[in-house]
């Protein structure tokens, strides 16, 4: 079984399925993360209380962190394997190449990945460990977020990165059923709508929160 699984992973289809499953897990986390962060609107007590509640369950926090790290690692590893293969599959390029069906989101998946990865490192150093944050205080989530987003270019980085993320999520959420072989004519027409809604909710909330601080609605 183990050798069969490795053999399956050695195929491009196997790698794509690993990308679909890990991508789906990461996307579900992002949805939860975004919905949780909406509590910024509830004020300092609400958001700090939510953070304290989560950190009161260290087993859960670390299980999720390790799970996400594993999923992210496999997602990136598979992406690199597929990218290297796809890069070499057409050594002589077309003089003229026109597209009919592919989307901007689909064609920029490979560039969205590294941009989001760089942003993730920045985001963790900014709001989780605080090294790149001017006035970081552990546990004071609300104050950290407001102080962070008040810097206009920090907000701009968050907004730009989350636009990229929304495009990445759109193609990913459209693709995973196809890749896992679960597409079906009965519901295929709903897939782009679902993908746009998912990417819109996650990207929208993550862009809305810095704007809330920048516009002075929360201070």
């Amino acid at each position: 079984m183990a050798t069969a699984a490795l053999k399956f992973y050695s195929t491009t289809i196997g790698k794509k399925m690993v990308m679909a499953v890990t991508g789906l897990l990461l996307a579900l986390f992002l949805l939860g993360h975004a919905l949780g962060n909406l509590q910024l609107l509830g004020g300092p007590q609400q958001l700090d209380g939510y953070a304290a509640k989560l950190h009161g369950l260290p087993a859960l926090v670390w299980a999720v962190r390790l799970g996400l790290l594993l999923a992210l690692g496999l997602h990136v590893l598979s992406a690199i394997g597929l990218w290297l293969r796809n890069r070499s599959s057409r050594p002589v390029r077309y003089q003229v190449q026109r597209f009919r069906e592919t989307t901007y989101a689909a064609r920029t998946m490979i560039w969205g990945g590294p941009i989001i990865a760089l942003f993730l490192v920045y985001h963790l150093l900014h709001f989780t460990t605080g090294q790149v944050h001017g006035s970081f205080e552990k546990g004071h989530v609300y104050a950290n977020v407001v102080a962070g987003f008040k810097v206009w270019w920090v907000s701009l980085v968050y907004i730009g990165a989350n636009l990229t993320l929304a495009f990445h999520l759109y193609h990913g959420m459209w693709s995973w059923l196809q890749t896992l072989g679960m597409g079906h004519p009965k519901y295929n027409r709903w897939r782009p709508i679902f993908a746009a809604a998912f990417a819109g909710v996650v990207g929208g909330i993550n862009i809305f929160l810095p704007l809330v601080v920048l516009l002075g609605i929360r201070r």
Partner: peptide, 10 residues
């Protein structure tokens, strides 16, 4: 040596 599918639909 064909490439992998990225669900572009072309």
């Amino acid at each position: 040596g064909f490439g992998a599918c990225t669900n572009n639909g072309e």
